[in-house]
Amino acid sequence: MKLPVSTEWVLHCAATLAQLEPGGTASAAQLAEYFDLPAPYLAKQLQALTRAGVFNATTGPRGGFRLARPAAEVTLLSIVEAVDGAASPYECREIRQQGRGAAPPEDCREPCVLARTMKDAHDAWRRSLDGVTLADILARLPEAAPGRTRARLGQGR
């Protein structure tokens, strides 16, 4: 499975916001500079996370983005699906019913074994991401990472 590069961006931005002090925000411009990303495109991805209820956005001089829920309640799946959707990357087009090797219709009443296997793999991938929260990610960061992140984003400490 290949995901768009923006998926990496939003996962890192979410982990970064999770490192801020409660109530702390970072603007799209700050996050774009922090990761050396194109600000307009990143802003669109961050807005998608806001529409999905993963982030809250505030305006004004101290405005920006923050997590909408505690890090322990934000799964990686919720982040990925907010920007990439929930559809499976595999689409069965029933080629088993085409060409010289076409299977008879009575053998094609159920999804083929390949389609079922790919669905199982996608479901396992989704369960795996749904079982990991931003709090889990934070627990695996080096101890100094949150302080360094806050300092580099101008959040103190």
Rank of each mutant, 00 (worst) to 15 (best):
A39F: 00
P40T: 12
Y41P: 00
Y41A: 15
Y41I: 10
A43F: 05
A43R: 13
Q45H: 11
L46H: 04
L46P: 04
Q47S: 13
L49G: 02
L49I: 04
R51K: 12
R51H: 10
A52T: 09
V54R: 02
V54Q: 01
V54E: 03
F55K: 01
N56F: 04
N56T: 14
A57K: 13
T58W: 08
T59I: 04
T59Y: 07
G60R: 05
R62C: 08
R62A: 15
G63D: 09
F65K: 03
F65E: 02
F65Y: 15
R66Y: 00
R66V: 01
L67P: 00
R69E: 11
A71M: 05
A72C: 08
T75N: 06
T75R: 03
T75P: 02
L76F: 03
L76R: 01
L77Y: 05
L77H: 07
L77T: 01
S78E: 14
S78W: 02
V80T: 08
A82W: 03
A82P: 03
V83Q: 01
V83R: 00
V83E: 01
D84H: 11
G85W: 04
G85K: 03
A86K: 10
A86F: 00
A86R: 12
A86P: 04
A87I: 00
S88P: 02
S88R: 08
P89F: 10
P89E: 12
Y90D: 11
Y90C: 09
E91W: 00
E91D: 10
C92W: 03
C92F: 06
C92L: 04
R93Q: 11
R93Y: 03
R93L: 12
I95N: 10
I95W: 08
R96F: 06
Q97D: 11
Q97S: 14
Q97C: 12
Q98I: 02
Q98M: 13
G99M: 07
G99L: 05
G99S: 09
G101Y: 07
A102W: 07
P104R: 14
P105M: 06
P105H: 06
P105F: 05
E106N: 06
E106W: 09
D107I: 00
C108Y: 00
C108D: 07
P111M: 10
P111H: 09
C112R: 04
V113L: 13
